[in-house]
Computed example of a mutant assay.
Amino acid sequence: MVSLIRTLRSLRRVGVREWWRQLQYIGDAKSGRFVGADQFGNRYFENLNPEEEVPGRHRWVDLAQHEYHASQVPPEWHSWISHIRKDPPTEDNVMKNLSPPWKAPWVENLTGTRGAFKTYNTAAPKINAWEPKVAPRGQ
Rank of each mutant, 00 (worst) to 15 (best):
H66C: 08
V35D: 01
A37S: 13
E76A: 11
V54M: 08
W106P: 00
W102E: 15
I84Q: 15
P136F: 10
S82F: 11
P50K: 04
G36M: 00
A104S: 12
L110V: 03
H66S: 12
P88M: 02
A104G: 04
W106M: 05
R43V: 07
I5G: 11
V107W: 05
P55C: 13
F40N: 05
L98Y: 15
R17C: 12
G32F: 04
N93Y: 14
E51H: 11
H69D: 13
R33M: 07
N42I: 03
T90N: 05
R114I: 06
P132A: 06
W130R: 04
P88S: 07
P100A: 11
W106S: 04
H78I: 03
F45E: 03
W60I: 04
R21D: 07
E76M: 12
S31K: 00
S71V: 10
Q72V: 04
A116L: 00
P132E: 12
Y68D: 06
T113V: 02
E52M: 07
H78N: 13
N97S: 15
A70G: 15
W106A: 01
L98I: 08
V2P: 05
R43T: 10
I127V: 13
S82P: 01
S31T: 02
A129Y: 09
M95N: 02
F117V: 06
M95W: 02
H69M: 01
N47Q: 03
E46K: 09
E18T: 10
F34E: 05
N47V: 04
R12I: 09
L98P: 02
A123E: 14
Q22K: 11
